[in-house]
Each structure stands twice: as structure tokens, then as C-alpha cells.
Computed example of a mutant assay.
Amino acid sequence: MTPASPGAAAASAPPAFDWNAVGARLLAEFYRFLAGAPLLLVALALTAAAWWIGAWLARRAVVARIAGGNPFLNNLLATTIRGGSALLGLTVGLQLMNATAVIGAVLGTAGVVGIALGFAFKDIVENYIAGVLLSLRQPFRPHDHVRIADNEGLVAAMTARATVLTTLDGNQLRVPNALVFKSVILNFSQNPSRRFEFDLAAADDDGLDAAQARIRRSVEAVDGVLADPDPESFVVASADGKASVRVRGWIDQRRSDIDQVRSAALRAATAALRSPAPREPIAPSAAAKAADRAAQLRPGAPERARRHLLRAGESGGHSHDLLDPAAPAE
């Protein structure tokens, strides 16, 4: 076996680690840092100044005037102004340090992080945006009696996440703003007038017209029932000698409770229906029949109720009507 030469052994040995090169590189980077330290301080000062200016602008009264007293919009505008001003200052500082590549990396990272956070906090973002839109349109006001989907109560407050209702049995109910925005909202307080109705069973005979007249007069006499539009009574079904009479009336919700007035009207109408009819000749005259019919139909009552509903709709509208009355109808 031939022994290995000293030159071959030296060639196969691993090279030694050069600590001098590492030290030289670190020293060079340290000198570069010292040379760029003034620019770094200026960039940090610009970013801090931009953030301070943004915070100062966000507190100005003009922002509150633009928001129109809306706390959600005011908060959104203030956050946008602060964030935009800080981002502008950071961009100028990085440009000053000739770090344009870092700007692209920061923006790309911010985009990726924003997408990830959007998926992670989807419900929170959705509820917040829905709260902003609801506060802009304001389909209801504090203390309004509303029904949102299957939830009914008085509006207590609206937060960044949910609309707080006080239910009619005194409990607190929090409805997510996204659900409120997408649901059908029934506002009972928008129009002070509200209609109630109930059905009664009566004998379907010659005395039905007079019974309806007595029912209307009894309902008109109930405290809380409005005279305009006046109460109505009409037959909705008839079978086997029995007629179903529907009674309708209106109340002012600001002064009367609908359940109490409806209960009083139901009792009065039931008593009027059960009371004996006044004695009439066996063969009523044509004039008496015509008078009963006129009392039952009361010309003009449907038109008065229609005008009342139209006035209620006009008084309850706060947004611009997109329907053009002059446009052709199908």
C-alpha cells in the first residue's frame, strides 16, 4: 500500500473558518448603519409627525360636520385619516432612505395580512360595516318599537357589533348588525297611527246590517279609538247561517296602548252584538232598508282610510324615493 503524499492530505482537509472576513463584514455594515442613522432618524421623525398630524386632523370639527353627528362614520373617518397620514409618512421616510423595495414588500405584506384578517374576522368586519350603513340610513331611532325578522322590542342602542333591543317582556336582546341590515324591518313607531282588527261571529239574517251598525257605534265610543279614519265593520265569510264580521279601528300609539284599546273595543262590540235589536215592523219599509245599507257602507270611508295610509307613508319616509310617478307602468 502506497502512503498518501503530504500535498494530497493538505488538499483533502476542509478550509478553516475565516473570522477576519466575518468581522470585516460586520464592521462594514456597522459603518453603513452609522452613515444612514441620520436619514433613519429623519424617516422616523417624518412618520411620527405624519401620525400626529393625522390624529390632529381627525379631531377637527370639520370631521364631525362631515359625519353629520354619526358616531360610526365619525370613528371611521378619524381612523382613515390617521392611518392614511401615517402610511404617507412611512412611504416618504422609506423613499428618503432609498428603500423602495421595502415599500413594495410592506404593501404586499399588508395586503396578505389584510386578506387573512378579513377571513379570520369576517363576522366582526361585516357587523361593523353594516352598523356604519345602518347609522347612515337610520331606518329607526332610539326608543322606536321595531320588529327585525322574528325579534321585536324597543331600540335601546346600536354598537359596532349589534343593535340592542329591549323586548316587550323587559329582557335585553342583541341582534347582529349584519342580520339587521339584511332583514325586513317593521317600524311601529314611524307612524303614530296604528290599526287593530278582530273578528266576531253573528247570525246571518235580516238583522245583520243593524248589528254591524251597532258594532261600529260601540267601537267609536271606546276611549282611544280615532274618529278619522272611522271604524269599519264588514262580512268576510258566511256559512251555515253564521257570518264572520271583521271590525277595524285606528289608535294613536303615542297616547294609547293598542292591546288595551283593542280589548275594550272587542268587549264593546261583543256587547253590542248580543244586545237585542230594536223592535221594527215585521215588514221594514224600503226607506229603512236603504238607511241601514247607507249606514253600513258609509260612502267615502275607504277613500278616507286610503288617504290616511298615504299620509302615514309620506310622513314615515326619510330617504329619497326612487319611484318616478311619471314613469310608464307595466
Rank of each mutant, 00 (worst) to 15 (best):
S5I: 11
A13V: 11
A13R: 12
V22C: 05
G23A: 08
A35K: 10
P38Y: 03
L39V: 09
L41P: 02
L44D: 10
L46Q: 01
A49Q: 04
A49P: 02
W52L: 12
V63P: 00
S85E: 05
L90A: 12
Q95D: 06
Q95P: 06
L96R: 13
N98I: 02
I103S: 02
G108N: 05
G108Q: 09
G114L: 11
A116T: 04
A120L: 08
Y128C: 09
D144T: 09
V146K: 06
L154M: 12
M158P: 00
T159C: 01
T159W: 10
A162N: 13
V164G: 02
T167D: 07
Q172W: 10
V175K: 03
V180A: 06
I185N: 05
S193Y: 14
R195S: 15
R195W: 15
G207D: 14
A210S: 00
S218G: 03
V225S: 07
D230I: 14
A237H: 12
G241R: 09
A243V: 06
S244L: 12
S244V: 14
R248C: 09
I258H: 02
R262P: 04
R274S: 06
R298M: 12
R298I: 11
A301K: 03
P302M: 08
R306P: 01
L310N: 15
G317Q: 15
H318I: 13
S319T: 14
H320F: 13
H320D: 15
D321S: 13
